[in-house]
Design a protein around this nucleic acid. Structure first.
Length: 468
RNA sequence: GGCGGCGUCGCCAAGUGGUAAGGCAGUGGUCUGCAAAAUCACUAUACAGCGGUUCGAUUCCGCUCGCCGCCUCCA
């Protein structure tokens, strides 16, 4: 079996072969840090986290870059998001950005999303962006006018290859207010001349200004990952124009293919409508965490394939939580039995169970190999869980080897690859001795039928009632 | 208007050219001091509709209906 990834560029699943053997270079569009991340961000970054985790599991050295957009980009109203946020919170733009970056990282940590290797900020790479724009001017792919610089779309005939659009089709229906100074309505801005009152602006060969939206990703991706990336990820809504423009400017500059595999994840919906900051129908991760556990949110998101939309509802996420608890219970049961399991092995079923574990592992891998099919993989976990429970119910003598193997497989698939917290390890380890003592006392009380006293004990235990 | 996607049991959600995983909810057993957990069994006329291709389609093609995304900042 080989890993297959759905490539937006070719509209089909392709076997994944990285450019450099044993190494994957991956870039994902990060958030604009002017307010708190919402569940849409959670879905996106959890999806890519799965990709990263699985690639690591497969043995690749993964170099994962995710940008932080801290240059504001203009709204319809002509306002800049960062500046708007700064005004709202009465902070300097960079204070605002600093604050939300920290909060974003906290949210991702809570959801058990592995941190990218590099989180470059757009404002820290103005020079690289200017250099890239200069190169495009030099090569004749861009033109400057009135202190701004535009990419000349007519010089790049394959513009539209990612999203399947033709420039001509777009022009007719274009509702965008066309800037008069553009030579072609589809030209996009690389550098914007700043008005004097614009707070965030930098010197450039073309006067004071700030970078256009698309150029930061090209500049930073290529700086850290080279001219050709293996994987570029992002939300579907960024396919056009953002990713299309990234391709144009990058490939125009280098003459090389920019990205080998384009990966786009689908949206979170609320009552069938996209959750987004602009629509205002979003739930920020922090609020969701007050209501649901982080692993529940993560699990809920993973029960749908990353290329499908997820309709967010209380009923759905609660059902997911119940299901996950079942997996956790099995895991806790395994770890509990593991403690007391004997080394000497009188049990007969070892061979059989080992074969069984192999089969489940195989099925799990097949699911993940097929474009990271986490819902199917989770289904395998449920099957495994049922099988193990049935086995533990039946066998009276279970060897340490068997339990260890089951435990490790469960841990590998659930915790390591899917990133699900299957039980709280630290709580158990620190309080271990005391909990054991309490359990012992409780059992003694039960044996002398002191029910009332015995029932007091579970109330003091922090978690894992199933230990009893 | 252009481009793309979706419509599977009450809910969530995989999947396949030969009538369909799993989870939640529900019902009934086992276990238990009660409960929880676990487990077993059960349950349902579930593949939007209409045509076409085919020996055979939920799976391929066409049309219709419904929903969604992008074309403008957006994960």
């Amino acid at each position: 079996m080989a890993l297959k990834i759905y490539n937006t560029l070719t509209r089909r699943k392709e076997e994944f072969i990285p450019l450099h053997q044993g190494e994957v270079r991956m870039y994902v569009c990060g958030p604009t840090v002017y307010s708190d991340a919402h569940l849409g961000h959670a879905k996106s970054y959890i999806s890519f986290d799965i990709i990263v985790r699985y690639l690591i599991y497969l043995g690749y050295r993964v170099k994962y870059v995710q940008n932080l957009t801290d240059v504001g980009h203009l709204l319809d109203t002509g306002e800049d998001r960062i500046l708007m946020g700064a005004k709202r919170e009465k902070l300097d733009p960079m204070e605002l950005v600093e604050n939300y970056i920290r909060r974003y990282f906290e949210d991702m940590d809570a959801l058990n999303v592995l941190a990218p290797n590099i989180s470059p900020r757009a404002t820290a790479h103005i020079l690289e962006q200017i250099e890239l724009i200069e190169l495009l001017l030099q090569k004749g792919y861009a033109y400057k006018i009135n202190g701004s610089v535009y990419f000349d779309i007519t010089k790049f005939p394959s513009y539209g290859k990612l999203s399947g659009r033709k420039i001509e089709d777009q022009v007719a229906g274009a509702r965008v207010e066309i800037r008069d100074e553009k030579q072609h309505p589809a030209d996009f801005v690389l550098w914007v001349k700043a008005t004097p009152e614009h707070i965030m602006q930098w010197n450039s060969p073309w006067g004071k200004g700030y970078p256009g939206w698309h150029i930061e990703c090209s500049a930073m991706a290529m700086k850290y990952l080279g001219e050709t990336l293996d994987i570029h990820g992002g939300g579907m809504e960024n396919m056009f124009p953002h990713h299309e423009c990234e391709i144009a400017q990058s490939e125009a500059a280098t003459g090389k293919q920019f990205v080998r595999y384009w990966v786009h994840n689908n949206m979170i919906l609320v009552n069938g409508v996209k959750m987004s900051k602009s629509l205002g129908n979003f739930t920020i991760i922090r609020d969701a965490l007050n209501k649901y556990s982080p692993e529940q949110i993560r699990f809920f998101i993973l029960t749908t394939h990353y290329r499908s939309p997820v309709d967010f509802s209380d009923a759905a996420i609660q059902g997911a939580g119940e299901g996950m608890r079942k997996l956790q219970t099995t895991f806790e049961r395994l770890s509990e039995i593991l403690r007391y399991a004997q080394n000497d092995n009188k049990e007969t079923g070892t061979l059989k169970i080992n074969k069984l574990l192999d089969e489940y592992k195989q099925k799990f891998m097949e699911a993940m190999d097929d474009d990271f099919n986490t819902p199917l993989a989770i289904g395998v976990l449920f099957d495994l869980s049922r099988e193990l429970n049935a086995y533990l119910d039946k066998e009276t003598q279970v060897s340490k080897q068997t339990i260890t193997a089951a435990y490790q497989l469960y841990d590998k698939l659930g915790s390591e690859i899917l990133g699900l917290t299957l039980y709280s390890k630290h709580t158990l380890m620190e309080a271990d001795k005391y909990i054991e003592l309490l359990i012992e006392i409780r059992n003694d009380l039960r044996s002398i039928k002191q029910w009332e006293l015995a029932d007091k004990i579970p109330n003091f235990l922090p978690s894992s009632p199933s230990l009893l």
